[in-house]
Structure formats: C-alpha cells, structure tokens
Computed example of a mutant assay.
Amino acid sequence: MSPPPAQPGMAWASLALGLLLMFGITAYPRALVDAAGKPDHLAATLAAWAMAAGLVRGVGFVPRNGLLRIALSGWASALACCVALLRLYLVRG
C-alpha cells in the first residue's frame, strides 16, 4: 500500500507577500495612482491578483484545476507584484 500524498503545507513567502500587499494597499491606497493622481486600474488589478494568489497559496491551498493552480501559485503572485511595481514605476516617470 502506498502512503497518502503529502499535503502542500503553508508557503511562508507567498503568505508574507499577500499580507504585505493587503496591509500596504489598505494603509496607503495612493500607492496605486499615476503621476496625475488618477487611479491606475491595471496596477491595482495586478496588485489585487498578487495579493489573492499570495494569500491562497500562502495558507496552503492548491487548486485541483490546472489553470487555477497556475493563476493562484506563488510564482504568479510574485510575477503579478513585479509587473504592478514596474507599471507604477513606468507610469510615474
């Protein structure tokens, strides 16, 4: 008899990124505006995706659906966060 599959467990880096984004955006929402003071919706969407993926993967949940597994992975969280930061850097000039 084979042993049961191992549980994925918590991903502390993803959880830390998700919590950092959650508290950071709540405390300072002006971080997601462009140079003119208008909200940058693409950066906000990417930051929200990074936050959600970080929290989902961080607590140890791994979806069965392959597309959701990729979209809510730790790598997706890091990539979305980096692209959001790059977008804000380029938009602000």
Rank of each mutant, 00 (worst) to 15 (best):
M51K: 15
V91H: 07
L15Q: 01
C81N: 09
G54C: 06
T26M: 10
L85K: 00
A76Q: 07
S77F: 00
P8D: 10
G9R: 08
S2P: 11
G9T: 03
C81V: 08
A53R: 11
A52L: 14
M10P: 08
P8K: 09
N65E: 15
G9H: 11
A35K: 01
W49M: 15
G54E: 07
L85E: 01
S14N: 03
A11G: 02
L32D: 00
A11W: 10
G18P: 06
V62Q: 11
L46K: 06
A35M: 03
A6F: 14
G54S: 09
P5G: 12
G58Q: 01
M51Q: 15
P4N: 01
A53N: 12
A71E: 05
T45V: 11
A31Y: 05
R87T: 05
A35L: 04
N65A: 15
S73D: 03
G60K: 07
I25T: 09
A43L: 06
M1S: 15
A6H: 13
I70L: 15
G60M: 12
L79Y: 13
P39C: 09
P29K: 05
V91M: 13
L72N: 05
R30Q: 14
G37N: 05
A16I: 02
A6K: 12
G18V: 00
R92T: 06
M10R: 15
G66E: 09
I70N: 07
M51L: 12
W75R: 13
P8I: 00
L15G: 04
L42Y: 02
W12M: 09
Q7Y: 07
A71H: 08
C81S: 13
A13L: 11
A71S: 11
G66Y: 07
A78W: 07
L46F: 13
W75L: 12
P39H: 03
A35R: 10
I70Y: 02
L20D: 03
A50V: 09
M22I: 00
A36S: 12
M22H: 06
A53Y: 12
C82A: 15
P4M: 02
G74D: 04
L79F: 14
G58K: 00
V91Q: 15
V83M: 15
A43N: 05
G93T: 06
W75Q: 11
L90C: 07
V59M: 10
P4Y: 05
A50L: 13
A47F: 12
A47W: 10
Y89D: 02
L85G: 04
K38S: 13
L42S: 08
G58L: 00
W49K: 15
R69M: 13
Y89T: 08
